[in-house]
Amino acid sequence: MSFLRKLLAVINKDIAAEMHTREIISAMLVFSLLQLLIFSFALDLHAAIAETVAPGVLWATIVFAGTLGLNRSLAREQRNSCIDGLLLAPMSRSAIFFGKVAGNFLFMVLVEAALVPLFSALFGVALFRLSVLLVLGLGTLGYASVGTLMAAIAVNTRAREVMLPVLLFPLALPVLIGAVQATGGLVSGGSLVDVAAWVRVLVVYDLVITAVSLVTFGYVLEG
């Protein structure tokens, strides 16, 4: 299938670029660690309150660090007019969109893979569970989706580093609420059934936002 082959080509290209520079992952990772440090002192994070605060801290870290990666990823396409190269190729706009979303999702998941064990160790909360990982995946997917669209807009504006969070955060609110609540419910001993309402919020958000982003992405790219 041509669609899938080209989508994979875009993902491979992003992975290859990242292997050469490691700038996206390292930027997100270092920034996440710094945030952890700041939150630890700001909230005086110790075991007694860790369980209530940890989900919020985790997701705030992911959301903030995510903007760095999203910005870099789309800035790469902007530099040297690479995005024109993609638009000139005989491929659908949706293959470009899904390719970029998948790449951004992958990079964020890799950073989370480092963050989760660290979190568990530092604050003594059990995050290494399939249900928590599912929530992480769902939340990250929706965030990467809308984030890719917003970053594609932001890299074309003045002051792009400021513009991305300003555009993205208010739109990502349902993800943040849903993910924090679901993670919180699971961390305090609940099962997936107990947080089903929040998981549903994440699933609905992912579906709706991906559909809308997909339809509008083409309009962002071509002038």
């Binding site: 669209l149 504006t157 709706v208 309009y219």
Partner: peptide, 30 residues
């Protein structure tokens, strides 16, 4: 912060659409 009238119109149309779609989702989540 967008240069060029056409680009500004395209970007803000997209943002206006995506933003409005997220409002009911935010509402239920809140």
């Amino acid at each position: 912060s967008v240069e060029g009238r056409e680009q500004r119109a395209r970007f803000s149309s997209v943002y206006g659409i995506v933003a409005f779609v997220t409002v009911p989702l935010s509402w239920f989540a809140i």
